[in-house]
Design a protein around this nucleic acid. Structure first.
Lengths: 141, 141
DNA sequence: ATTTATGCAAATAGTTTGCACACGT
DNA sequence: ACGTGTGCAAACTATTTGCATAAAT
């Protein structure tokens, strides 16, 4: 029994072909951050018989089960937003998006995390979730 | 000639009724952060004859002209995203959203700004734009 | 055999666009 | 008068849902 099968069972999800394929793809992907449409197209290219609706359904279930994290990058210039997903490896991190190449870079800074907590606490709130995205471009020197 | 009229001319936009009404509304609003639909409904309630499409067009023009800033809050739980707009008063700030009331609170922290710059610079990038949203709830004590 | 998942197509939500008419200068 | 802006309806994009069929246990 593969690790993916175990992961699915642990998440309380029946082990079906589409779910396995999607999970494998997320684990093996060269790009950690994919949209529902990316997943769909990759599976189709790979010869799978899958529907886009199923991809959305499965990704939502994965998100609910904590297998996957969903982001809403608006690519910095307010274009129509598209959700993108990555496997939840347990390590929290934020993102910067290279607006020229579309590349997504992960980073983490404890100082920023702490200050965020403080900002919220000062106002009588606690943080449930947060989203920090830097839209960046390569420094030309 | 009103201040709004001047602002519109300065932005290179012809001074029309819808544009004036929307600008006035943004300036006078009790809620600084409004969606296109909020604007539309408020103007309709106020007896204006305006179309939703015009609201979107005008808000986009205002954004392009730098009169207004557009945000994409996904209310923390990945619900369908809706854009919201606020007047650009020139002061940069970030936002926290009370996930229970929907209230939007502004904040600013130079430390966070600096660390962000550093994170980007360390990786050979410069920040073009950034978006930081904390999804928070009131601390129950 | 039963329950749950899937694929397809139709529905939805937010936003944009084409077009004939109305408005601002 | 001229060029731009507007309202309406239709188009579009990302995503969700209803339903009959197909899998998984």
């Amino acid at each position: 029994m593969s690790q993916e099968t175990v992961d699915l069972k642990k998440a309380g999800l029946k082990v079906t072909l589409p779910r396995l394929r999607i999970l494998e793809l997320l684990e093996g992907a060269n790009q950690k951050h994919v949209t529902a449409d990316d997943v769909y197209k990759l599976l189709i290219d790979q010869g799978e018989d899958i529907g886009l609706a199923t991809v959305y359904r499965v990704l939502n279930q994965f998100e609910a089960a904590g297998l996957v994290v969903k982001h809403m990058f608006d690519d910095g210039s307010g274009r129509p937003a598209q959700a993108c997903y990555e496997l939840d490896e347990g390590d929290h991190h934020d993102h910067m998006v290279d607006i020229e190449s579309g590349e997504v870079i992960e980073f983490f800074d404890q100082e920023i995390e702490d200050r965020q907590e403080e900002m919220a606490r000062d106002r009588g709130y606690e943080i449930v979730d947060h989203s920090l995205v830097l839209y960046v471009q390569k420094i030309k020197s």
